[in-house]
């Protein structure tokens, strides 16, 4: 799994709270550009994606990752909780959405849903 978020606290929270018996965090990126470059190196099966980031936002990054690997499973984790943003992320290629702030249980359930999909 690769974690994309410009906040170190959130990257570490996701790594700590995802179910580590299922997910192995192989890389973390601090913005969209960094994520695309890291994705080419490590080819993760699952990506958690923030939306509001400098140097390529989450929607642009999702589109870029889907072009590189259409089978990649992307879970958006963002504070932007309006319906239109959720729809935009799903149309770009994300498979699920978790709203910040989130609990460990919400994260684990959302990750399990996207890998079972």
């Amino acid at each position: 799994m690769m974690i994309v978020d410009d906040s170190r606290i959130i990257r570490q929270k996701i790594e700590r709270e995802c179910d580590q018996s299922i997910f192995n965090v192989v890389g973390s990126a601090i913005n969209g550009e960094h994520a695309i470059s890291l994705f080419k190196e490590i080819s993760p099966d699952v990506v958690t994606m923030d939306l509001t980031m400098p140097n390529l936002d989450g929607i642009g990054c999702i589109k870029g990752l889907v072009k590189l690997d259409p089978s990649c499973k992307i879970l958006v984790i963002s504070a932007l909780n309006d319906k239109a943003t959720g729809m935009e992320a799903l149309e770009a290629g994300a498979m699920g959405f978790v709203t910040k702030p989130f609990s460990a249980l919400e994260l684990q359930e959302a990750l399990r849903e996207i890998i079972e999909d």
């Binding site: 410009d6 906040s7 170190r8 606290i9 959130i10 509001t52 980031m53 400098p54 963002s78 504070a79 932007l80 909780n81 309006d82 239109a84 943003t85 709203t99 910040k100 702030p101």
Partner: peptide, 30 residues
Amino acid sequence: MMMEDAVGEVANTLSGNARRELGHDFIIST
């Protein structure tokens, strides 16, 4: 560094969550 990260993340989360009421055109920066 972590305190700076935390204050930014709280500001981001509170502003981002406000979009449910204020709408998609309430555009927030990093």
